[in-house]
C-alpha cells in the first residue's frame, strides 16, 4: 500500500513539474510585457497629472493667466506665487511672474479646477530630473511663453 502511494506521488510530482515547465515555455513565446525605455515609452493615460503648466493665448502667445491669484489662494500646499500687472492699453492683467514650488506640490489639481480662464493644465512631462532640489523649489511656469512686458 505504502509503496503504491509513494510511486503515485513520484509520478504525480513529475507531471506537475512538466506543467510548470510548459507554463514558462509558453511565456517565452508570448510578447514581453515590458517596454524598452527610453527607446520606447508607454503611452501616457489621458488623465495623467504632471506638474501644472501655463497655457498660452492662441492669438497673442502671451500667458492666459489674468493674475487673479485664485489658484494661489486655493492651493492647499501654498506652493504657487503669482503676480501680474496690466500691460499698457489693456484692460486685463497678465501674469508677469508665476512660480510653482514643485517640492511642495501634491498634484491635487485644485488650481486647474479653480482657474476662471482655463490658463492652467497638467503637463505631460513625466521624466523631470535635476541634480539639485532648488531647481524644483521655484519653477518658472512662464518660461517659453511670450511676454507683453
Amino acid at each position: 500500500m505504502m509503496d503504491c502511494c509513494y510511486i503515485k506521488e513520484v509520478v504525480k510530482g513529475f507531471f506537475s513539474l512538466c506543467t510548470g515547465m510548459r507554463v514558462t515555455m509558453g511565456n517565452v513565446f508570448t510578447r514581453p510585457a515590458t517596454i524598452q525605455w527610453p527607446r520606447k515609452a508607454a503611452p501616457l493615460p489621458d488623465r495623467f497629472r504632471g506638474h501644472i503648466m501655463m497655457l498660452a493665448n492662441d492669438k497673442t502667445g502671451y500667458p492666459k493667466c489674468i493674475a487673479c491669484t485664485s489658484c494661489a489662494r486655493n492651493c492647499p500646499s501654498q506652493c504657487i506665487t503669482v503676480t501680474g500687472k496690466k500691460p499698457e492699453g489693456e484692460k486685463k492683467k497678465v501674469a508677469d511672474r508665476f512660480e510653482l514650488d514643485f517640492t511642495k506640490c501634491s498634484l491635487c489639481g485644485l488650481c486647474v479646477e479653480i482657474c476662471p480662464v482655463g490658463a492652467l493644465d497638467f503637463s505631460r512631462d513625466y521624466a523631470m530630473a535635476s541634480y539639485t532640489r532648488n531647481d524644483f523649489a521655484a519653477m518658472d511656469l512662464l518660461q517659453g511663453l511670450g511676454s507683453p512686458f
Binding site: 511565456n27 510578447r31 524598452q36
Partner: peptide, 12 residues
C-alpha cells in the same frame, strides 16, 4: 532566457 520566461526581454 530568464527575461523571456518572465515576460521581459533581458539585456538589449
Amino acid at each position: 532566457v530568464a527575461g523571456h520566461m518572465q515576460f521581459r526581454l533581458g539585456p538589449m
